[in-house]
């Protein structure tokens, strides 16, 4: 167990390093560098000509004249040691101040979507497998197919339209007007929860459909396993047989997917944020990327990825706790 834990932990650290390198490359990819944009913005907007010397000065000031590995090292140590992600080119403020609460809103959104996914996919998947070829099973399969094939922004638009025309209120945003700029308080949390369900449904639908199919398929496999009949032959009540054995085992793949779920949900966040105008990290990321504000975009990418990598680590540990075959190194 300890060995497994250490293995996964080291792998998590390596992954984080890898991810940070990839993101650093993405940041440096656009033609021209930060210095050029900075110089033009600072100096040209002040009506001055940008000279070659200015550029060299700016480059030196930001350490851009150093080789790439050194630049990466500076960038990452600033982040780790000082929490300094650089300055947003778009807004001229430190990236740290820009992101603030937004990353937590995104995580709250993703967590809600995951809870929703589990709450729907697991019981419906079990039902579908137990009552295979029933009307309910066909209905679940049909809705699952639709959920998988409808782009999530479309679902967002449909829900938005529905809330405007039928409910008479816009489902967009994460807060009501009076709470949008307010400090955190209990009523604000309640207000957030009231708004959270629409984006959570939008984000979670495809994933729910996916897990529903997985759950159903694994359940069908497991129900045919001999140990189920063996348990029945021991005189165990049917519901206990189902829940103690096949359901329990069919949960393993779902748990092992937790990290990737988080990734998929966060990945979908920018698109949904755009349609539902959510003030979260996804929307900021999109804005940053569209404007090629790479420090801001990179910072958000890094934060999101870090959370996903940690999520993968946690789901690995949970899986080991659930499945002795993994815990004891049997594959």
């Amino acid at each position: 167990m300890l060995r497994y834990f250490a293995q996964r932990f080291i792998f998590m650290i390596i992954t984080l390093l890898f991810v940070s390198v990839v993101i650093f490359i993405v940041i440096e990819l656009p033609p021209g560098d930060y210095a050029e944009r900075y110089a033009y913005r600072k100096l040209a907007s002040a009506g001055q000509d940008v000279t070659e010397q200015d550029m060299i000065n700016v480059r030196h000031e930001f350490g851009l004249d150093k080789p790439a590995p050194v630049r990466y090292f500076n960038w990452i140590t600033d982040i780790i040691l000082h929490g300094d992600f650089g300055e947003s080119f778009l807004f001229n403020v430190p990236v740290r101040n820009m992101i603030g609460d937004r990353i937590w809103l995104t995580m709250a959104l993703a967590s809600t979507a995951i809870l929703l996914t589990y709450a729907l996919a697991i019981p419906i998947g079990i039902f579908s497998a137990l009552y295979r070829h029933s009307f309910g099973d066909y209905l679940a399969t049909f809705i699952g197919y639709i959920g998988l094939s409808l782009p999530n922004f479309m679902l967002a638009l449909v829900l938005l339209y529905f809330s405007v025309t039928v409910l008479g209120s816009s489902a967009g945003g994460l807060f009501s007007e009076e709470f949008a700029e307010a400090a955190w308080s209990w009523p604000r949390v309640v207000d957030l929860l009231e708004h959270l369900w629409v984006p959570a449904v939008v984000l979670g639908t495809a994933n729910t459909a996916f897990h529903l199919q997985t759950m159903r398929a694994t359940m069908l496999d497991e129900l045919n396993q001999l140990y189920v009949d063996a348990a029945r032959a021991r005189g165990i009540p049917e519901w206990k047989v189902i829940f103690k054995y096949p359901v329990r085992i069919a949960l393993n793949p779902i748990v092992s997917y937790l990290g990737f779920d988080l990734g998929k949900l966060v990945a979908g966040a920018p698109v949904v944020a755009l349609v539902l105008s959510l003030p979260d990290a996804g929307q900021l990321l999109l804005q940053a990327l569209l404007q090629q504000d790479m420090f801001l975009g990179g910072a958000i990418l890094l934060m999101i990825s870090t959370m996903i990598v940690i999520g993968v680590f946690i789901s690995d540990l949970m899986l080991a706790a659930l499945d002795p075959r993994i815990r004891l190194g049997e594959t």
Binding site: Y227, A230, A233, R234, G235, I236, Y245
Partner: peptide, 25 residues
């Protein structure tokens, strides 16, 4: 039926490997 299953008629199967749940002792 449950009283008979196990308590009065026991059954063992061909595949000892899969007669046990892999996640329970």
């Amino acid at each position: 039926m449950r009283r008979i299953r196990g308590g009065e008629i026991g059954m063992i199967f061909q595949e000892p490997m899969s007669s046990f749940s892999p996640v329970h002792t």
